[in-house]
Design a protein around this nucleic acid. Structure first.
Lengths: 141, 141
DNA sequence: CAGAGATAGTTGGAGCTGTCAAATGATTGG
DNA sequence: CCAATCATTTGACAGCTCCAACTATCTCTG
């Protein structure tokens, strides 16, 4: 039973991944752009290094990605006072706008979800909370 | 409440996507390979055309992908009796083995899931069934 | 304090995956 | 025979990724 529910969840996950790709395309964003926008907090610039680390990618890859974002006016580089080696990356006003629009569309719940009862929602919510707190580890054996 | 549950679900979905990518890499498979393996039924060869259609990609893209799969010995092309223009794509024994291994690891439920009660599982299952039947459409306006 | 070494980021070069468009070959069916 | 259909080849390009070399800056040590 757990297995069956899990497969369903993966199926939903895959569907949603496809949908997300469509939304990104609508907004003229590549997967890389999306990943970056979601990772950047409007109120809290990050450094190139911390971004590269959280993306588990090479530093030069991050340079490349931020270049692309900067070309589109979504982010801008800044300096960090106290250490002139490090550069910060912050969302521009347009970046903030784009991120909002992206999230708004991404997080819009599906129609079917609105027809669910309170009890069902709570049960699902609880289970998902448990699952979300786990980092992709699997069970048995 | 529906919105919150939905965000959680997306989060879980994203985590799982990352996990799936890791599994694929372990097995030396690219995302394209995975997509193809999951789409191919051991007992039912498909034609190039039908595959391209279900992947929503160009026919030449499918040729390219099947070339890669064939190089790895995961699939083989065959002819269709009655129409020598069309070619079928079928999993090789190694393809079947690889697909099994992939699915086994992909569908292994997370630890946390095994600690859930029967009632919770049923509630989640029901909701997921509803969500899985919907094709990525969203609700309100 | 000077110089050595560490650190942050960039540049340049390369490679792989995935994608399409256009031209081509093979086969079919009217 | 002619037009339509299925698949492949070829050529191009975007997205992402790494590695190695380089620049600027900081920090530690003698």
């Amino acid at each position: 039973m757990a297995e069956e529910a899990w497969r369903l969840l993966l199926k939903v996950a895959m569907n949603q991944f496809g949908r997300a790709a469509g939304i990104a395309q609508d907004l003229g964003l590549t997967p890389g752009h999306v990943k970056a926008l979601l990772a950047l907090d409007p109120d809290q610039p990050q450094t190139m290094g911390s971004l590269a680390q959280s993306f588990s990618c090479d530093a030069s890859t991050m340079t490349w990605l931020v270049d692309r974002l900067e070309e589109r006016g979504l982010v801008e580089r800044g300096g960090l006072k106290g250490d002139r080696r490090v550069k910060t990356v912050a969302l521009t006003p347009e970046g903030v706008r784009t991120k909002s629009e992206l999230e708004e569309r991404l997080y819009e719940p599906p129609r079917m979800m609105l027809g669910l009862g309170q009890g069902e929602l709570e049960a699902v919510h609880k289970v998902l909370q448990v699952l979300a707190s786990e980092n992709g580890q699997t069970g048995v054996k």
